[in-house]
Design a protein around this nucleic acid. Structure first.
Length: 586
RNA sequence: GCGCCUGUAGCUCAACUGGAUAGAGUACCGGCCUUCGAAGCCGGGUGUUGGGGGUUCGAGUCCCUCCAGGCGCGCCA
């Protein structure tokens, strides 16, 4: 509907340009807005004020000239000029009535568009290190990324969802060592677990699997293991050096194959858990991309060679540095360490070049906001390698703080003291969790009140919206039970009977849905949809309390049932985009 | 110290990305069920949009500055 108005105004503007009222090279794309106050009609356009200066005429005069040239439209009943030069459009009830028919005909397709024209967009999100189960912090990125992806699908983009698996690097070795040490404890060896090791219960579980399936095949005496290990932090040593020594020792005592077995057991167990967890959260990926595969294929070394050939790197203190400062980064970054190992950053350059090389029109990374300092160096690398950094958009999601009993819950993966996403899902349910996570724009901190979400009270907006949906379903069931003819008529038949204020309000809200989905998709702002759904549910509940639907008058009943079926459809479509169910009853 | 994000009603947040009188939920008080589900509806009031300056027809929104909070500033990932 907004597009229709914009079209009308554009035609009028072109006519004005042709007549020399405004400069021909300065015809703007008019902005059409919903009005805040119904006194101002349904839509407003501010283009007359925007053009006033360049045209050298007053806004109201320009507005009048524009209105004079506005083509006739059956959808528009009245056009007014108001205030400093706003042009206000009043939409005819008939236009709204045909909307109901459109919604009911298009069904789940209502609100979707072909705006994206099949352009390929990649969305990478979550990508948590497989060193432990997903916790509630990851949940926000998961819910947010999934909805952004689904919104883009609804806009006609060809979306590729991807999880980057950090299966290389030191953290994974610390995990493998942690599992092995727990295993040794299960073999009745006595040892002091390293301060920097992973302490969660899941580490014990993996160790127990190893012990159950392989007995003492992997056993070494703890005294032998710790013989030449420098002291840990509590003993006055360095915890990093301590754990690195343990990893080296594990490799040596176990040998490459046995070490790798434990490493892969830990990796696969956790990755399976993450995969299942996300699936139960309603999230699927087109691809799980392994960091290790980049090293194995030589892609990382190839990237470093390309940087070297183009003079983008230099050696200093035994390490190889990338000159990211040339491209606006704060400082240069190491890509090959003194010990000859490539850094995570080196893999990440290779990964991003791989993504861009796969031909996506746009690549979106959803990251935790704590990684924001990382953005300039990745973009620098893309530019240095001759690609366009603007093809990459990094969406930074702020932390989700968890509150229990009014107190902030402290979380640490290393110590194992965190609430897992799985626990959260079991406590508050998938629907509430998905909805809560995307209720705020991503750059806003999210306070997740566990008690509130758990209480399942009506404070929880997801119930409010779902209830509206269930209520419509209930009304339809009642109609059948009462022996009324619930088979609604085709098309726009009887819809002209919808004349009540509450009905027109509801119709106006329904007509906003495609605009909301589009705005939410193009701005990566799922929260717009959650707010809209609450408002639509509110309009419906108000209508429900003000009027009876199952009335004796066949035509009126038919019209009202068609209207609330349209409401049901839009609620369902919106909830579906959010990954939330639309229950028939609750 | 430098960089990024945030600061709006008692609390949690919106504000169509620069528009008209800044709005919802929650909390508090009162009213509405023998009629389609009361997980609902209706009514009642709150603002120096953190402070100051600037840009313009017009600023919560853009720019500068100060204040407060969060995060980051590794040859970790």
């Amino acid at each position: 509907m907004k597009h229709q108005i914009r079209q009308l105004v554009s035609l009028a503007l072109e006519s004005m340009a042709a007549d020399g009222v405004i400069p021909e090279d300065q015809v703007p794309q008019p902005v059409i807005e919903r009005t805040r106050d119904s006194l101002h009609g349904d839509f407003a356009c501010n283009v007359a004020m925007v053009l006033a200066k360049v045209a050298g005429r007053s806004p109201r005069e320009l507005a009048q000239r524009l209105v004079d040239r506005l083509p006739e439209s059956p959808s528009v009943v009245k056009v007014e000029i108001a205030g400093p030069g706003f042009i206000n459009f009043h939409i005819s009830p008939d236009a709204y009535h045909s909307l109901v028919a459109t919604i009911n005909e298009q069904g789940h397709g209502f609100g979707r568009s072909e705006l994206g024209r099949g352009k390929r967009v990649q969305v990478e999100f979550v990508s948590a290190n497989p060193t432990g189960p997903l916790h509630v912090g990851h949940g926000r990125g998961a819910a947010y990324g999934a909805v952004v992806a689904d919104l883009l699908v609804a806009m006609g983009f060809d979306v590729h969802r991807e999880y980057y698996v950090n299966d290389a690097g030191r953290q994974m070795d610390i995990l493998a060592a942690s599992v092995w040490l727990r295993y040794l404890e299960l073999c009745d060896e006595e040892l002091v677990f390293p301060a920097n090791g992973y302490r969660g219960d899941y580490v014990w579980d993996i160790a127990a699997t190893l012990h159950r399936e392989h007995g003492e095949t992997y056993k070494c005496a703890a005294t032998e293991v710790f013989a030449d290990i420098p002291p840990d932090e509590p003993e006055g040593g360095d915890k990093e050096i301590h754990v690195d020594a343990l990893i080296a020792c594990a490799r040596q005592l176990l040998g490459g194959n046995r070490y790798r077995y434990i490493f892969e057991l830990a990796l696969n167990t956790i990755l399976d858990d993450i995969r299942e967890d996300l699936e139960l959260f309603g999230i699927r990926y087109e691809e799980w991309f392994s960091e290790l595969s980049l090293a194995d294929s030589g892609a990382v070394n190839k990237i470093i060679e390309r940087l070297r050939e183009s003079g983008q790197v230099y050696e200093e203190k035994g390490a190889l540095w990338f000159r990211s400062t040339r491209y606006g980064d704060e400082k240069d970054r190491v890509v090959v360490r003194e010990n000859g190992q490539t850094t995570y950053f080196a893999s990440d350059i290779a990964y991003h070049m791989d993504k861009l090389g796969r031909g996506f029109d746009r690549v979106i990374d959803v990251w935790g906001a704590d990684h924001h300092g990382y953005v300039p160096r990745v973009k620098a690398a893309i530019e240095a390698l001759g690609d366009d950094p603007s093809r990459l958009d990094v969406l930074l999601v702020q932390f989700a703080n968890l509150y229990r009993g009014g107190k902030k819950v402290q979380m640490s993966t290393r110590s194992g003291s965190f609430v897992t996403l799985r626990e959260l899902r079991k406590e508050v349910g998938r629907d509430a969790a998905r909805f809560f996570y995307v209720m705020r724009k991503c750059e806003q901190h999210l306070d997740f009140d566990l008690d509130l979400a758990k209480s399942q009270s009506n404070d929880n907006p997801v119930y409010y919206v779902q209830y509206a949906h269930a209520r419509v379903c209930s009304v339809v069931r009642q109609a059948v039970e009462k022996g009324m003819d619930a088979a609604v008529s085709d098309g726009t038949t009887n819809l002209e009977r919808l004349r009540e204020v509450h009905e027109l309000t509801l119709l106006s809200s329904l007509s906003r849905y495609p605009e909301v989905v589009e705005a939410a998709a193009l701005n990566e702002e799922p929260h717009q949809l959650t707010h809209y759904l609450r408002e639509l549910a509110n309009d419906f509940h108000t209508y429900y309390n003000a009027h009876q639907f199952l009335v004796e008058d066949d035509q009126l009943r038919d019209a009202r049932l068609k209207l609330i079926l349209a409401v049901k459809q839009v609620l369902r479509n919106g909830l579906n985009l959010l990954g939330v169910s639309a229950p028939e009853s609750m």
